[in-house]
Design a protein around this nucleic acid. Sequence first.
DNA 1: GGTAGAGGGGATAAATTTAGCCCTATGCCA
DNA 2: TGGCATAGGGCTAAATTTATCCCCTCTACC
Lengths: 140, 140
Amino acid sequence: MYKRKIPLTMDCGLHLTKEVLNGKWKPALLNAIALGVRRPSEILRLLPGATRRVLSVQLKELEEHGMIEKKTYPQLPPKVEYSLTEIGWSLMPIIDALNQWGDTHRTFLETVIRQDPKVVHITKSACQLQHLSVGEQQVG
Amino acid sequence: MYKRKIPLTMDCGLHLTKEVLNGKWKPALLNAIALGVRRPSEILRLLPGATRRVLSVQLKELEEHGMIEKKTYPQLPPKVEYSLTEIGWSLMPIIDALNQWGDTHRTFLETVIRQDPKVVHITKSACQLQHLSVGEQQVG
DNA sequence: GGTAGAGGGGATAAATTTAGCCCTATGCCA
DNA sequence: TGGCATAGGGCTAAATTTATCCCCTCTACC
Protein backbone atom coordinates (compact mmCIF):
# COMPACT_ATOMS: atom_id res chain seq x y z
CA MET A 1 0.00 0.00 0.00
CA TYR A 2 1.08 3.54 -0.62
CA LYS A 3 2.67 5.36 2.30
CA ARG A 4 3.16 9.06 2.65
CA LYS A 5 6.71 10.27 2.47
CA ILE A 6 6.09 13.83 3.42
CA PRO A 7 5.01 14.37 7.00
CA LEU A 8 1.43 15.40 7.44
CA THR A 9 1.09 18.78 9.06
CA MET A 10 -1.77 19.05 11.44
CA ASP A 11 -1.30 22.01 13.68
CA CYS A 12 -4.06 24.40 12.80
CA GLY A 13 -7.61 23.20 12.46
CA LEU A 14 -7.50 24.07 8.80
CA HIS A 15 -5.11 21.26 8.03
CA LEU A 16 -6.99 18.73 10.09
CA THR A 17 -10.21 19.55 8.32
CA LYS A 18 -8.52 19.56 4.96
CA GLU A 19 -7.28 16.07 5.61
CA VAL A 20 -10.81 14.83 6.14
CA LEU A 21 -12.30 16.66 3.18
CA ASN A 22 -9.39 15.92 0.91
CA GLY A 23 -10.61 14.04 -2.10
CA LYS A 24 -12.28 15.08 -5.25
CA TRP A 25 -15.66 13.73 -4.24
CA LYS A 26 -15.66 13.74 -0.46
CA PRO A 27 -17.76 16.82 0.13
CA ALA A 28 -20.21 15.65 -2.50
CA LEU A 29 -20.36 12.22 -0.92
CA LEU A 30 -21.12 13.61 2.49
CA ASN A 31 -23.71 15.84 0.97
CA ALA A 32 -25.35 12.99 -0.88
CA ILE A 33 -25.51 10.83 2.18
CA ALA A 34 -26.88 13.67 4.24
CA LEU A 35 -29.61 14.10 1.66
CA GLY A 36 -30.60 10.50 2.05
CA VAL A 37 -28.80 8.89 -0.83
CA ARG A 38 -27.15 6.09 1.04
CA ARG A 39 -26.43 3.23 -1.29
CA PRO A 40 -23.21 3.31 -3.29
CA SER A 41 -24.93 2.56 -6.55
CA GLU A 42 -27.38 5.42 -6.02
CA ILE A 43 -24.60 7.81 -5.20
CA LEU A 44 -22.76 6.71 -8.28
CA ARG A 45 -25.74 7.55 -10.43
CA LEU A 46 -25.91 11.00 -8.92
CA LEU A 47 -22.27 11.76 -9.61
CA PRO A 48 -21.78 10.86 -13.26
CA GLY A 49 -18.29 12.26 -13.28
CA ALA A 50 -16.99 9.78 -10.76
CA THR A 51 -15.87 6.23 -11.21
CA ARG A 52 -17.14 3.41 -9.12
CA ARG A 53 -13.60 2.82 -7.98
CA VAL A 54 -13.03 6.33 -6.72
CA LEU A 55 -16.28 6.50 -4.85
CA SER A 56 -15.54 3.21 -3.23
CA VAL A 57 -12.11 4.37 -2.12
CA GLN A 58 -13.25 7.72 -0.84
CA LEU A 59 -16.22 6.27 0.98
CA LYS A 60 -13.84 3.96 2.72
CA GLU A 61 -11.64 6.84 3.77
CA LEU A 62 -14.59 8.78 5.08
CA GLU A 63 -15.54 5.72 7.03
CA GLU A 64 -12.04 5.28 8.42
CA HIS A 65 -12.05 8.90 9.43
CA GLY A 66 -15.25 8.32 11.31
CA MET A 67 -17.45 10.62 9.23
CA ILE A 68 -19.79 7.93 7.96
CA GLU A 69 -20.94 4.52 9.04
CA LYS A 70 -21.45 1.54 6.85
CA LYS A 71 -24.13 -1.03 7.29
CA THR A 72 -23.72 -4.17 5.23
CA TYR A 73 -26.77 -6.31 4.68
CA PRO A 74 -25.77 -9.94 4.26
CA GLN A 75 -27.72 -10.34 1.06
CA LEU A 76 -27.14 -11.15 -2.51
CA PRO A 77 -26.77 -9.08 -4.47
CA PRO A 78 -24.99 -7.20 -1.71
CA LYS A 79 -26.65 -4.23 -0.13
CA VAL A 80 -24.79 -1.52 1.70
CA GLU A 81 -26.01 1.67 3.27
CA TYR A 82 -23.98 4.54 4.54
CA SER A 83 -25.07 7.10 7.05
CA LEU A 84 -23.44 10.08 8.69
CA THR A 85 -22.04 9.71 12.15
CA GLU A 86 -22.53 12.43 14.69
CA ILE A 87 -19.26 14.08 13.83
CA GLY A 88 -20.10 13.65 10.18
CA TRP A 89 -23.30 15.59 10.72
CA SER A 90 -21.34 18.31 12.41
CA LEU A 91 -19.61 18.89 9.11
CA MET A 92 -22.80 19.53 7.24
CA PRO A 93 -23.13 23.23 8.03
CA ILE A 94 -19.71 23.65 6.47
CA ILE A 95 -20.50 21.55 3.44
CA ASP A 96 -23.68 23.53 2.96
CA ALA A 97 -21.76 26.75 3.27
CA LEU A 98 -19.22 25.63 0.69
CA ASN A 99 -21.99 24.61 -1.62
CA GLN A 100 -23.93 27.82 -1.21
CA TRP A 101 -20.91 30.02 -1.56
CA GLY A 102 -20.07 28.37 -4.85
CA ASP A 103 -23.59 28.69 -6.14
CA THR A 104 -23.96 32.26 -4.98
CA HIS A 105 -20.85 33.31 -6.82
CA ARG A 106 -21.25 30.95 -9.72
CA THR A 107 -21.20 33.55 -12.47
CA PHE A 108 -18.08 35.21 -11.16
CA LEU A 109 -16.32 31.96 -10.42
CA GLU A 110 -17.06 30.41 -13.77
CA THR A 111 -15.57 33.46 -15.40
CA VAL A 112 -12.34 33.59 -13.45
CA ILE A 113 -11.86 29.86 -13.59
CA ARG A 114 -12.23 29.84 -17.34
CA GLN A 115 -9.57 32.49 -17.63
CA ASP A 116 -7.07 30.15 -16.08
CA PRO A 117 -4.89 29.01 -18.97
CA LYS A 118 -4.53 25.60 -17.40
CA VAL A 119 -8.24 25.03 -17.80
CA VAL A 120 -8.99 23.85 -21.27
CA HIS A 121 -12.33 22.12 -21.09
CA ILE A 122 -15.14 21.98 -18.65
CA THR A 123 -18.02 19.73 -17.72
CA LYS A 124 -21.32 20.87 -16.40
CA SER A 125 -23.28 17.72 -16.17
CA ALA A 126 -22.25 15.98 -13.02
CA CYS A 127 -23.85 16.10 -9.64
CA GLN A 128 -27.56 16.21 -9.69
CA LEU A 129 -28.11 16.62 -6.03
CA GLN A 130 -29.74 19.96 -6.61
CA HIS A 131 -32.58 18.12 -8.22
CA LEU A 132 -33.44 16.32 -5.04
CA SER A 133 -36.42 18.14 -3.71
CA VAL A 134 -36.74 18.69 -0.02
CA GLY A 135 -39.47 16.11 0.06
CA GLU A 136 -37.04 13.40 -0.93
CA GLN A 137 -34.62 14.14 1.82
CA GLN A 138 -34.38 11.69 4.64
CA VAL A 139 -32.58 13.61 7.26
CA GLY A 140 -31.60 12.10 10.55
CA MET B 1 2.74 25.48 -18.98
CA TYR B 2 0.77 22.57 -17.67
CA LYS B 3 -2.71 22.13 -19.05
CA ARG B 4 -5.45 20.05 -17.60
CA LYS B 5 -6.41 16.99 -19.54
CA ILE B 6 -9.42 16.00 -17.56
CA PRO B 7 -12.35 18.35 -17.88
CA LEU B 8 -13.08 20.38 -14.81
CA THR B 9 -16.48 19.69 -13.39
CA MET B 10 -18.22 22.69 -12.04
CA ASP B 11 -21.86 22.01 -11.65
CA CYS B 12 -22.56 22.07 -7.98
CA GLY B 13 -21.26 24.86 -5.83
CA LEU B 14 -19.09 22.37 -4.02
CA HIS B 15 -16.87 21.90 -7.00
CA LEU B 16 -16.60 25.57 -7.75
CA THR B 17 -15.56 26.32 -4.21
CA LYS B 18 -13.19 23.43 -4.14
CA GLU B 19 -11.46 24.79 -7.21
CA VAL B 20 -10.78 28.05 -5.43
CA LEU B 21 -9.64 26.49 -2.18
CA ASN B 22 -7.69 23.75 -3.85
CA GLY B 23 -4.09 23.98 -2.78
CA LYS B 24 -2.28 22.84 0.29
CA TRP B 25 -1.89 26.33 1.69
CA LYS B 26 -4.72 28.31 0.20
CA PRO B 27 -7.03 28.37 3.20
CA ALA B 28 -4.10 29.21 5.44
CA LEU B 29 -3.03 31.98 3.09
CA LEU B 30 -6.45 33.55 3.07
CA ASN B 31 -6.58 33.26 6.81
CA ALA B 32 -3.20 34.88 7.25
CA ILE B 33 -4.09 37.77 4.99
CA ALA B 34 -7.40 38.23 6.74
CA LEU B 35 -5.53 38.44 10.02
CA GLY B 36 -3.39 41.24 8.70
CA VAL B 37 -0.30 39.38 7.60
CA ARG B 38 -0.01 40.78 4.14
CA ARG B 39 3.56 40.63 2.96
CA PRO B 40 4.78 37.41 1.36
CA SER B 41 7.86 37.23 3.53
CA GLU B 42 5.80 37.58 6.69
CA ILE B 43 3.40 34.90 5.56
CA LEU B 44 6.30 32.66 4.79
CA ARG B 45 7.59 33.02 8.31
CA LEU B 46 4.21 32.08 9.71
CA LEU B 47 3.96 28.92 7.67
CA PRO B 48 7.25 27.12 8.25
CA GLY B 49 6.09 24.07 6.38
CA ALA B 50 5.74 25.88 3.09
CA THR B 51 8.35 26.84 0.54
CA ARG B 52 8.66 30.29 -0.87
CA ARG B 53 7.93 28.87 -4.27
CA VAL B 54 4.66 27.25 -3.30
CA LEU B 55 3.36 30.27 -1.50
CA SER B 56 4.23 32.41 -4.46
CA VAL B 57 2.38 30.12 -6.83
CA GLN B 58 -0.68 29.74 -4.66
CA LEU B 59 -0.88 33.43 -3.93
CA LYS B 60 -0.85 34.02 -7.64
CA GLU B 61 -3.68 31.59 -8.15
CA LEU B 62 -5.73 33.20 -5.43
CA GLU B 63 -5.13 36.50 -7.11
CA GLU B 64 -6.13 35.16 -10.51
CA HIS B 65 -9.26 33.76 -8.97
CA GLY B 66 -10.05 37.18 -7.60
CA MET B 67 -9.84 36.30 -3.93
CA ILE B 68 -6.96 38.59 -3.10
CA GLU B 69 -5.48 41.76 -4.51
CA LYS B 70 -1.83 42.53 -4.86
CA LYS B 71 -0.33 45.93 -4.38
CA THR B 72 3.23 46.31 -5.55
CA TYR B 73 5.16 49.23 -4.19
CA PRO B 74 7.77 50.41 -6.67
CA GLN B 75 10.54 50.31 -4.11
CA LEU B 76 13.75 48.56 -3.53
CA PRO B 77 13.93 46.11 -2.02
CA PRO B 78 10.54 45.27 -3.48
CA LYS B 79 7.51 45.48 -1.30
CA VAL B 80 4.27 43.71 -1.96
CA GLU B 81 1.10 43.60 0.04
CA TYR B 82 -1.87 41.36 -0.44
CA SER B 83 -5.35 42.04 0.77
CA LEU B 84 -8.64 40.25 0.50
CA THR B 85 -11.11 41.35 -2.10
CA GLU B 86 -14.76 41.57 -1.29
CA ILE B 87 -15.42 38.09 -2.53
CA GLY B 88 -12.34 36.94 -0.69
CA TRP B 89 -13.78 38.29 2.55
CA SER B 90 -16.99 36.47 1.86
CA LEU B 91 -15.01 33.25 2.16
CA MET B 92 -13.79 34.02 5.64
CA PRO B 93 -16.78 32.68 7.54
CA ILE B 94 -16.15 29.38 5.82
CA ILE B 95 -12.43 29.40 6.48
CA ASP B 96 -13.15 30.19 10.10
CA ALA B 97 -15.63 27.37 10.27
CA LEU B 98 -13.15 24.93 8.77
CA ASN B 99 -10.54 26.06 11.22
CA GLN B 100 -12.82 25.84 14.22
CA TRP B 101 -14.24 22.51 13.27
CA GLY B 102 -10.75 21.07 13.05
CA ASP B 103 -9.74 22.53 16.36
CA THR B 104 -12.92 21.49 18.07
CA HIS B 105 -12.47 17.89 17.03
CA ARG B 106 -8.70 17.88 17.21
CA THR B 107 -8.37 14.99 19.63
CA PHE B 108 -10.67 12.76 17.68
CA LEU B 109 -9.23 13.72 14.33
CA GLU B 110 -5.64 13.24 15.37
CA THR B 111 -6.54 9.77 16.52
CA VAL B 112 -8.33 8.61 13.41
CA ILE B 113 -5.80 10.22 11.12
CA ARG B 114 -2.97 8.47 12.86
CA GLN B 115 -4.70 5.15 12.39
CA ASP B 116 -4.50 5.60 8.66
CA PRO B 117 -1.75 3.20 7.56
CA LYS B 118 -0.70 5.63 4.85
CA VAL B 119 0.26 8.16 7.48
CA VAL B 120 3.69 7.42 8.80
CA HIS B 121 4.94 10.64 10.29
CA ILE B 122 3.42 13.89 11.34
CA THR B 123 4.43 17.46 11.92
CA LYS B 124 2.93 19.75 14.48
CA SER B 125 5.00 22.85 14.17
CA ALA B 126 3.71 24.73 11.22
CA CYS B 127 1.23 27.53 11.14
CA GLN B 128 1.47 29.93 14.02
CA LEU B 129 -1.51 32.00 13.24
CA GLN B 130 -3.15 30.98 16.46
CA HIS B 131 -0.52 33.02 18.22
CA LEU B 132 -1.67 36.23 16.68
CA SER B 133 -3.64 37.94 19.37
CA VAL B 134 -6.74 39.82 18.44
CA GLY B 135 -4.94 43.06 19.06
CA GLU B 136 -2.59 42.38 16.22
CA GLN B 137 -5.29 41.81 13.69
CA GLN B 138 -5.82 44.46 11.11
CA VAL B 139 -9.17 43.62 9.75
CA GLY B 140 -10.71 45.47 6.85
C1' DG C 1 33.65 41.13 -3.67
C1' DG C 2 30.29 38.41 -0.95
C1' DT C 3 25.89 38.34 1.59
C1' DA C 4 21.32 39.35 2.86
C1' DG C 5 16.56 40.88 2.02
C1' DA C 6 12.40 40.97 -1.02
C1' DG C 7 9.93 39.14 -4.91
C1' DG C 8 9.24 36.65 -9.34
C1' DG C 9 9.35 32.72 -11.89
C1' DG C 10 11.48 28.58 -15.12
C1' DA C 11 12.53 23.72 -15.15
C1' DT C 12 12.43 19.33 -13.38
C1' DA C 13 11.90 15.66 -10.02
C1' DA C 14 9.19 13.47 -6.61
C1' DA C 15 4.93 12.67 -4.31
C1' DT C 16 0.16 11.97 -4.31
C1' DT C 17 -4.28 11.38 -6.27
C1' DT C 18 -7.50 9.66 -10.00
C1' DA C 19 -8.66 6.92 -13.73
C1' DG C 20 -9.28 2.47 -15.90
C1' DC C 21 -9.28 -2.56 -16.13
C1' DC C 22 -10.06 -6.81 -14.27
C1' DC C 23 -11.68 -10.48 -11.06
C1' DT C 24 -14.59 -12.11 -7.00
C1' DA C 25 -19.58 -13.84 -5.77
C1' DT C 26 -24.78 -14.83 -6.26
C1' DG C 27 -29.41 -14.70 -7.87
C1' DC C 28 -32.64 -13.26 -11.48
C1' DC C 29 -34.25 -13.12 -16.20
C1' DA C 30 -34.44 -14.18 -21.10
C1' DT D 1 -25.75 -20.04 -21.13
C1' DG D 2 -25.11 -15.05 -21.33
C1' DG D 3 -25.91 -10.66 -19.32
C1' DC D 4 -27.16 -7.48 -15.56
C1' DA D 5 -27.00 -5.71 -10.89
C1' DT D 6 -24.45 -4.99 -6.42
C1' DA D 7 -20.17 -4.08 -3.76
C1' DG D 8 -15.02 -4.79 -2.76
C1' DG D 9 -10.69 -4.33 -3.89
C1' DG D 10 -5.84 -5.38 -6.51
C1' DC D 11 -2.96 -3.32 -9.80
C1' DT D 12 -1.01 -0.10 -13.16
C1' DA D 13 -0.92 3.98 -15.72
C1' DA D 14 -2.06 8.83 -16.07
C1' DA D 15 -2.83 13.17 -14.30
C1' DT D 16 -2.04 16.67 -11.07
C1' DT D 17 0.17 18.85 -7.31
C1' DT D 18 4.34 19.89 -4.36
C1' DA D 19 9.00 20.09 -3.54
C1' DT D 20 13.63 21.47 -4.96
C1' DC D 21 17.01 23.97 -7.28
C1' DC D 22 18.55 27.67 -9.60
C1' DC D 23 18.71 32.19 -11.71
C1' DC D 24 17.46 37.23 -12.01
C1' DT D 25 16.77 42.35 -10.16
C1' DC D 26 18.43 46.04 -7.17
C1' DT D 27 20.21 48.12 -2.88
C1' DA D 28 22.53 48.28 1.44
C1' DC D 29 26.14 46.71 4.41
C1' DC D 30 30.60 44.61 6.01
